[in-house]
């Protein structure tokens, strides 16, 4: 598991951590049941305070991404990946329909829209 944090980002550090661990789980880089470093170890490796990693882990736990066993550490929770994907897909559909509405308003064709999409996607 790799985590890169930025001290100059506006996003709080604990959020950077939760987001990166979440995406590692969603992409399958972290398998369910596999251990993640203890919050004290992670704090040391990232050179940040324990209370920050503690907060990140608490939020991940609340959101159901990880679980902790006292004395053993934290592990990736069983994820219903299909459900999460389905939810994300729904959000994407909503966002895309807004894009299509906007495109129609200024007369953008489907081809042109796809072209813009391709450029952005490959960026």
């Amino acid at each position: 598991m790799q985590i890169i944090i930025s001290n100059s980002s506006k996003e709080p550090i604990y959020e950077q951590i939760t987001n990166q661990i979440k995406s590692s789980i969603l992409t399958g880089e972290l398998q369910e049941g596999s251990p993640i470093p203890s919050m004290r170890k992670l704090a040391k490796d990232l050179q940040i305070s324990v209370i920050t990693t503690k907060r990140a882990y608490e939020e991940l736990e609340k959101a159901g991404f990880i679980y902790s066993i006292v004395g053993k550490g934290s592990f990736v929770a069983e994820q219903n990946l299909d459900l999460i994907k389905e939810k994300k897909l729904k959000v994407i559909e909503e966002q895309l329909s807004a894009v299509i509405t906007n495109s129609r308003e200024i007369g953008l064709s489907l081809d042109e829209l796809q072209q813009i999409m391709r450029i952005l996607y490959e960026e």
Binding site: S38, R40, K41, A43, K44, S49, V50
Partner: peptide
Amino acid sequence: LQEIMIDGNRTIFFSTHITTDLDRIADY
């Protein structure tokens, strides 16, 4: 100091007027 803190029973209380030291590792 962070290495020492891996043992969750330890507590460090430290005074300083160089606050950048704390930006990194202080919890309180």
